[in-house]
């Protein structure tokens, strides 16, 4: 077990290194930050000084060498806009993003898995149809639209919740629900689909034949086995969540990493883009390592090689 974890952690290194290399190349070919950070009428000498100060005048391979050297020590350089270390800009906002993403994920799991189990167990009944119809809604509406409609309805018309910002639970409600809606659908449907598969497997029938009650059969035997693909989907959705916070944080003025990321990409603030990509990749890899470990806990047939 420990050997497996260590091996996986070692394997993470090339993944993150690869991501950093690709994102470095992509950001550097996508434009010059000088154009975006200084006003368009800035004289050439001032532009040249800016480029020199931030090392943008050097050949790209030299820039990459310098970047790698510092990155190895956990230093992604200073933001071109904020005059602060890029890593600090990201870590300062990580808490807000984690809060939002965890709330959304918890909400989605708390609603999605029971809904999926009920839908599978009561297949083709009114409950199944209702669950499928509602989860459909979350999938069919772009989150930027959903967020805006939510603000207009709950903040402006009804006056129940604040329109944006971070602070109390009331501030968290709208962005978390908006972010969760797209996930609930996916989790509920995957659960339903996998439960249907499992409910017809031999061991479930055996359990039933042995006279176990319906509830333990469904909630323990079946769900435990249906959980593996559901877990895969949840693990993959961490990437979706990190992408989703980009839009949700912008619409609800949530002070998180997603908003920082999109502004950094637009401004070609290379160090910040690199730092965000690094942290997103790290979180993603860690979560999926945990998911893979959980596989083995849930299904002894999967061994560690």
């Amino acid at each position: 077990m420990l050997r497996y974890v260590l091996r996986r952690i070692v394997l993470t290194v090339p993944v993150i290194a690869g991501i950093l290399l690709i994102s470095f190349l992509l950001t550097h070919v996508s434009g010059d930050p000088t154009d975006l950070i200084l006003p368009p009428d800035t004289p050439d000498e001032a532009r040249a000084l800016f480029r020199e100060k931030h090392g943008l005048d050097r050949p790209i391979w030299v820039q990459f060498y310098v970047f790698s050297l510092h990155a190895l020590q956990g230093d992604f350089g200073n933001s071109l806009r904020f005059h602060e270390p890029a890593v600090k800009l990201v870590t300062d906002r990580l808490g807000a993003t984690t809060e939002l993403a965890m709330a959304a994920m918890a909400l989605a799991i708390a609603v999605g898995i029971p809904a999926g189990v009920v839908a599978a167990y009561r297949r083709n009944t009114a409950a199944d149809v209702a669950i499928r119809a509602v989860s459909l809604f979350g999938q069919a509406v772009p989150s930027f639209y959903l967020g805006i409609v939510a603000i207009l309805v709950f903040a402006v018309w009804l006056g129940w919740l604040p329109s944006g910002g971070r602070g109390t639970l009331a501030h968290l409600a709208l962005p978390a629900i908006t972010l969760a809606l797209g996930l609930v659908a996916l989790i509920a449907r995957t659960t339903r689909s996998c439960m249907l598969d499992v409910l017809n497997q031999d061991y479930v029938r055996t359990a039933r034949a042995k006279g176990l009650g319906e509830a333990p059969v469904v909630w323990v035997h079946a769900l435990r086995n249906a959980f593996i693909p559901v877990l895969t989907v949840i693990g993959l959705q961490v990437g979706f969540l990190l992408g989703g916070v980009v839009v949700t944080e912008t619409v609800f003025s949530w002070p998180g990493v997603g908003r920082l990321a999109v502004q950094a990409i637009y401004a070609r603030d290379f160090p910040v883009v690199q730092a965000v990509v690094f942290f997103f990749a790290l979180i993603f890899v860690i979560v999926n390592l945990i998911v893979d470990l959980l596989y083995a806990v849930l299904d002894p047939r999967i061994g560690y090689r």
């Binding site: 992509l26 950001t27 993959l236 990437g239 992408g243 990409i265 999926n288």
Partner: peptide, 8 residues
């Protein structure tokens, strides 16, 4: 998967 699609 870990790569932000928007950036790409």
């Amino acid at each position: 998967l870990a790569f932000p699609v928007v950036l790409l």
